[in-house]
Nucleic acid binder design. Structure first.
Lengths: 348, 348
DNA sequence: CGCCTTTGCGTAACCGTTTTCTCTTTTTGT
DNA sequence: ACAAAAAGAGAAAACGGTTACGCAAAGGCG
């Protein structure tokens, strides 16, 4: 079927093109009967409006950029944000927008300049804590809507943030460990400057303080959050226990599953039985978590929901698209879910 | 700075809009001096052409769809294709196109229909073996260029395919194992209907046949290629060895790192020393491979290059964009690289 | 040196929408 | 029943490019 234009629809319905346009854009000032007639004609002809022509006059943006640090994704190191990307893409697509993946390494390319320069970009989604600060500023300087995912930039105090509820999830995990009767804890995490590590630590420490657990909120912070870091972190913890003569923690809260898996390996290497000698819980619920020995109790992060939430905030920021624009400086926290397996001491 | 139009440039250069258009599109029929003058004027004004207006007349597509099975990416189960996506996106962007992520679950949405209906989509990249056949057919039925990544559909014999050199990489790995003096092998892999498992098995079996190794090309095929499958596969292999009374293999070739990691774990659980009692090599070179004990020797797959290659093939298929359109039915194999660590028996 | 073919450039129509302005028609108030 | 106001629908002018066509100047030829 040849492509139909608004004129074909007008002819088919016996009205003018202006009327068809009004009907298709839900503008008022069209009679009920005429409206129905136009709609029917459009459906009969299988009419699909031409985006380019529409954009030409209205000059509305038609896409958003999704910025993420390229090297992370490049070597299969972090599957996390691709789920966010897909979910956000689907949600924006539902509203007629496209989401363009913008790996950081390519930012300076002609592509981006054309996109921004031609006014097609309506804003940005910026994922992860490892995006260079100057890039964030450059993006912000475009004056376009910006939503941070799993990040937070002190220089952009009014930029909305969407993230998993790290603090709440961590508290939930610790509270579960407390029901097992454990009283001495340790936390293994990444740099406390990274929002996710920091918030998870806060949740852990807060829940412990609330419960009045012994020994305070012990923490081992590593420069990375990989499996290897988790392994090293446990060794370091053991070393500390040995030198200080303090009692060994009974339960370990790890800021992500990769670290938890590393700690689990290290603990087993050192002769600990898990969870009898040491309980471990992780965070994220990656695929491997369920397959560890013992299966890892962890906090599930709904990456797809984070993507959808971020997309909605962005949509709220482009004028006139959604009734309720976000409040300046707001943070949207997407709920988490405790997935109880066996590494915590449960025997399901 | 207010947005400049082609008319501004024409005025600035003292020529007509037609001439400016010709210069900007590298059409012939413009004098050298005039061309230079126009270019200078455009640069001076910071002119960026309006994509929508351009598309309105020429009706050229401006984006491509990247289709992948949604559920895989959703729960962080497969980071593989996101690297492909980003690389392809960057490459297409370099040529002025956008790449739109199209999770399979959303295919039927209004978004896709609009995209296809309004003629903006110039074709599709389709990643992975788990995309439903009827979807592939539906996409193919659009009559738009289609490139398969890590897939192959017997019903689409003339559709170009881009993939890693599974067979070559596997052969390379086996040849390396042969230099260690091993003569009895086994292969752990997923369904032999999946192109990647199948091709890796072929490379393994071929290299063995060429070397005349004992015991033929033993293989354990599992329905999945997860870490858990690898664990089970090794147990099954042991069981077979026990019941048949055949000698234990000396080296294991696994069709991906997840399975290799699982097999490694199982082997250690069964009291094998790696690599002294059993050598293991994997495929993919995921982040965890380097952190295993012992570090896993594996075949690195350049997911980013696969993305770029796929993008180039697609670009070659849209008329008039690249000089050399791909040959019908061609397959582009992206080279792999053996990463020697310690699980193969090397002591670096 | 005049005729014919190139070559270089400008004019204007067109692509498919949205939107302003205008002209009818209908509704409302008295 | 009549003027005034409101509502519905059409004509035409944008939007910012591309391109068919036409015309002038430059070059080739006998």
């Amino acid at each position: 079927m040849a492509r139909r234009t608004i004129r074909d629809v007008a002819a088919e319905a016996g009205v003018s093109v202006a009327t068809v346009s009004r009907v298709l854009n839900d503008k008022e000032g069209v009679g009920e009967k005429t409206r129905a007639r136009v709609l029917a004609a459009a459906a009969r002809l299988g009419f699909v409006p031409n985006d380019s022509a529409r954009r030409l006059t209205s000059a509305q943006p038609d896409s958003f950029g999704f910025i993420v640090r390229y090297h992370r994704v490049r070597r299969n190191e972090d599957p996390f944000y691709s789920a966010v990307l897909y979910a956000a893409s689907a949600e924006l697509g539902r509203h007629g927008y496209q989401l363009v993946p913008l790996p950081v390494g390519e930012m300076e390319a002609e592509h981006l300049r054309r996109l921004v320069g031609s006014g097609r970009l309506g804003g940005f989604l910026l994922a992860g804590p490892e995006v260079p600060a100057e890039l964030v500023r450059e993006v912000a300087a475009q004056g376009l809507p910006l939503v941070l995912i799993d990040n937070r930039d002190p220089e952009l105090p009014n930029t909305p943030v969407v993230a998993g509820d790290d603090q709440g999830g961590a508290a939930q995990a610790v509270q579960h460990l407390l029901t097992h009767g454990y009283r001495r804890f340790a936390c293994l995490c990444g740099p406390l400057t990274w929002p996710s590590s920091r918030n998870r630590y806060f949740g852990y420490a807060g829940a412990l303080a609330l419960a009045g657990a012994e020994g305070g909120a012990r923490v081992v912070s590593m420069p990375e959050t990989t499996e290897a870091s988790g392994y090293q972190a446990l060794l370091r913890l053991l070393e500390e226990v040995r030198t200080t003569g303090e009692p060994m923690p009974q339960a370990l809260f790890c800021a992500n599953d990769a670290m938890a898996l590393g700690a689990l390996r290290a603990a087993k290497d050192q002769g600990f039985r898990i969870p009898q000698d040491l309980a471990i819980v992780g965070f994220d619920d990656v695929a491997m978590a369920a397959e560890a020995t013992p299966p890892l109790t962890t906090v599930r992060v709904f990456t797809d929901r984070i993507g959808v939430a971020a997309a909605r905030v962005l949509l709220g920021m482009v004028a006139g698209d959604v009734a309720a624009p976000p409040v300046a400086g707001q943070t949207v926290l997407v709920g988490t879910e405790l997935v109880v397996r066996q590494s915590c001491g449960c025997t399901v």
